[in-house]
């Protein structure tokens, strides 16, 4: 006598046969259900295309940079700033001859006379006040 449900050397033979049958059986999936699932897949996929990645949000610094004309303008501004700093720290000779240099701009008395203001502003104002 062979009972297929007894635990023999090869296991539960009857049960294994049932498992084989179950494995071969088609899934209880109707055509309608498959259509619905396909529509779900396509709907979600359409959402990917409808919502492309948002452009990166511009920060305040980026906004300011764009307002002044972008990086070319920034480079020009930086160059001008460095040049101004350079002139201020190490003024060239012609800048000093314009009277913008230090008090030791001239070396001779003639130059001092030439550079002196013959009619300072406050004298002019005094003169005009007397006449009125």
């Amino acid at each position: 006598m062979t009972d297929k449900y007894t635990d023999k050397d090869d296991g539960f033979a009857g049960l294994d046969a049932l498992f084989d049958t179950a494995r071969a059986a088609p899934a209880p999936l109707s055509e309608d259900m498959l259509d619905r699932l396909t529509r779900d897949a396509l709907d979600v996929q359409a959402g990917f295309a409808a919502s492309p990645a948002a452009p990166p949000r511009r920060g305040r610094l980026a906004g300011w940079l764009a307002a002044i004309g972008g990086w070319p303008a920034m480079a020009t501004l930086a160059t001008a700033g460095v040049a101004g700093l350079w002139i201020g720290a190490m003024p060239p000779a012609f800048v000093e001859t314009l009277g913008l240099g230090s008090a030791t701009a001239s070396d001779t008395a003639e130059d001092d006379l030439y550079l002196v203001d013959p009619l300072p502003g406050f004298v002019v104002s005094l003169t005009m006040g007397e006449g009125s």
């Binding site: 179950a22 088609p26 899934a27 209880p28 999936l29 259900m33 498959l34 699932l37 396909t38 897949a41 396509l42 996929q45």
Partner: peptide, 18 residues
Amino acid sequence: ARVLTGRLAPVVMAHAYR
């Protein structure tokens, strides 16, 4: 989308039903 659904839906359905 169609190929994946046709391939995976029966697998998931069978497992869920069992």
